[in-house]
Design a protein around this nucleic acid. Structure first.
Lengths: 253, 253
DNA sequence: TGAAATATTTCATTTTTCGAGATATCGTTA
DNA sequence: TAACGATATCTCGAAAAATGAAATATTTCA
């Protein structure tokens, strides 16, 4: 968890510092934070003062180390409560993961990339190892191709025009023409696969999530090809579709 | 709580935006945020993108509105579990534990499970399988059933629809119909019990913690049935309620 | 008392933000 | 399908803020 803040956008540096403080569970000294953050002492020093003035951090009685402040506590409570709204969605994924016995995830299209909304891993049920905000390319993932296929022709053209077809494996689709053909097939099938196109040895099957008549997201299962060859993965399609329907409902209202 | 960010140090603006997002009920649009924050549109726009790239915020699939993201959820839990944030509540719990002479704990709902924020044991040193942060199911615990009972009908239905009723003991409730009946009774009573439904030989009584008019958490006492039969456990309800009130206030401040 | 560790201040430089206005896009209605 | 209003996104020069090396002050502890 030694996230250096060097490369963090300045806007987020203050927040990242807070993350370090709460993650440390207990009081932290300026020097420790300096090290954790990988920033020069005066920089951290100034930030701490600002955060303290704002009530986000508190100094320990002895004055040296800092801990979470009242405003931070309040914020955390609000955040957790607001997150609870999403519990049903997560539960749907969890049940799907149990049923198919493999990792499942929920994705959407955002600014020309696939972004992970949520994910449930079966191997490690209680910990979400989803790298926060992780994004994957469109052209080499089941979700990406499916989301792309379901766009209107106009938008699809626009997105494809902006794409760079980076090659990840031997199976990666690396030109627009080939991709268009694939997308047509996907539209016809109403689902998409990733046959080791992004990571060698990993296959994936994705089904569309519809809300209010539009494809808004995508639910997918993936696994090592050794454990789940594509043919077997396809058998999970019915379960995926059931979950997709439930998820779609959860997005309406 | 409509803090204008005009006068906020730039370092904290991003954080203040996050505060607005989690404090709002549900997803927020760019325009709403612009208004809440009192900042020009392009400014908020840029900040949202940075926050989203960082995984702190997420776009809602249907539109362009924004809610808390996975990294923020994780941060919130870390914060609530951090020493300094727990302290004020911990004192209240400790007093309660001394009064009733049994183990007490404070829980919240997170991702469709009960998560322990804190616990105080009187009889035995902290030899716990249930440290703060650990999770237990909803359908077989006093806290879980209480938190579930207090959800809005819509959300409750959704959560229940996706639940898997794992059986832990002979008394575990294992079907939705039965659970619904129990939840109705719980709502009427304003409290819930666990009559050896999770661990054989262990009973529990839970009362709701209300802050700013909503149920935010749950305080409970539990003990071996041999030492404290359910009838006796119920006698602790008044003490639980007093503690619950104090806890609620401590969340508001 | 002195030395080591830690905290704070200074200040010229660099980076980042700022925000008005222009433009693009979306969803809807004629 | 066309056109409209609402909303989102981009552009760019000016202004503000953060930066961090080095110097200085304070605390801690032997």
């Amino acid at each position: 968890m030694a996230t250096k803040l060097d490369r963090t956008p300045p806007l987020l540096r203050a927040f990242a510092l807070l993350e370090h403080v709460v993650h440390a569970d207990g009081a932290v000294s300026l020097l420790e934070l300096t090290e954790l953050a990988g920033l020069p002492k005066p920089t951290v020093y100034r930030m701490l003062n600002v955060l303290e003035d704002a009530g986000l951090l508190q100094r320990e009685p002895e004055g040296r180390r800092v801990t979470a402040g009242p405003r931070l506590a309040r914020f955390a409570l609000d955040a957790l409560l607001s997150e609870a709204v999403r519990a049903p969605r997560h539960a749907i994924l969890k049940r799907l993961a149990e049923e198919v016995g493999e990792t499942v995830n929920l994705t959407m299209l955002d600014r020309g990339e696939v972004v992970y909304l949520d994910r449930v891993e079966t191997a490690w049920p209680l910990r979400m190892t989803l790298v926060p905000g992780s994004r994957v390319p469109l052209h080499c993932t089941a979700s990406g191709k499916l989301l792309l296929a379901m766009l209107s022709a106009v938008r699809r053209k626009r997105v494809i025009a902006e794409m760079t077809f980076e090659r990840f494996t031997d199976n990666t689709i690396i030109d627009a023409k080939h991709l268009e053909r694939e997308l047509a097939a996907i539209r016809k099938a109403g689902m998409a696969t990733d046959n080791e196109e992004y990571l060698a040895g990993l296959v994936c099957v994705a089904a569309p999530v519809t809300a209010a008549g539009r494809i808004v997201a995508c639910v997918a299962v993936h696994a090592p090809v050794a454990r789940m060859p594509l043919a077997r993965a396809l058998l999970h399609l019915p379960a995926l579709r059931v979950a997709a329907t439930a998820l779609g409902k959860s997005f309406e209202n």
